[in-house]
């Protein structure tokens, strides 16, 4: 098989191949490293270097636990779960400092959130990202986590449930409440008149 073919191989297949030969793990690492790096930075607001360390640890833990992977789950949900735990543990034990959420300005995923929040003005994207980023920083962790998974990582309810280990009903509740709180923060910060 060529490298191109391996890149098209499913996650499940790559897991099986990695269990036989660890060199195949490279394809899984390359497939997820960028996604996880952003996910970690968005979720717990760490620096690029810290995100790099966390993600490397995620890949080591994922490899060690490969036999625990259940093909009934999506591999992406499983590795995001490991990344979520690793990121939360990292910030729990590091010296406490203010949260800085990183959003990719080139990323358009948040536009769906803008629509869901009834942000009526189709303003310049760059003008909207900063207020949204600040509002996310003020949001309670539990709400920020589901919103990021839904709107930035494009995960469906079941995937969010599997990543955060929450029942589907709780995911729906957290999403609704998170959106309300986010909208409230935007309004309280006087973004309301311009954007909401």
């Amino acid at each position: 098989m060529t490298e191109q073919q391996f890149k098209q191989t499913s996650d499940q297949e790559l897991v099986k191949l990695t269990l036989q030969d660890k060199s195949f793990y490279v394809f899984l690492v390359e497939r997820y490293e960028e996604k996880l790096r952003w996910y970690v930075r968005r979720t717990v607001g760490v620096t690029v270097e810290e995100a790099e360390d966390i993600v490397q640890e995620v890949f080591i833990k994922t490899y060690l636990n490969l036999n625990d992977f259940d093909p009934q789950l999506k591999f992406s949900s499983w590795i995001y779960r490991i990344a979520h735990n690793e990121a939360i543990n990292y910030v729990r034990y590091r010296k406490r400092r203010p949260l800085t959420v990183e959003l990719d300005q080139a990323d358009n995923d948040w536009l769906l959130l803008r629509d869901d929040l009834d942000i009526v003005q189709s303003a310049d994207q760059a003008l909207l990202v900063e207020p949204l980023r600040q509002a996310l920083e003020q949001l309670e962790d539990k709400y920020r986590q589901v919103l990021i998974l839904r709107y930035w990582e494009d995960k469906d309810y079941q995937e969010i449930s599997d990543i955060l280990h929450l029942p589907l009903g709780s995911v729906a509740t957290l999403l609704n409440r998170g959106k309300k709180q986010l909208k409230q923060i935007l309004q309280d910060n006087n973004f309301g008149q311009t954007y909401v």
């Binding site: 793990y25 490279v26 690492v29 390359e30 490293e33 490397q56 036999n67």
Partner: peptide, 26 residues
């Protein structure tokens, strides 16, 4: 191969890391 993939593989090699057996999780 990406830098991170290289570092990860290198750690797996140097630290002789292996996936935990399936029975452990079962």
């Amino acid at each position: 191969m990406s830098d991170l993939a290289l570092k990860t593989l290198s750690r797996l090699e140097t630290e002789h890391l292996k996936p935990r057996p399936r029975w452990h999780f079962l």
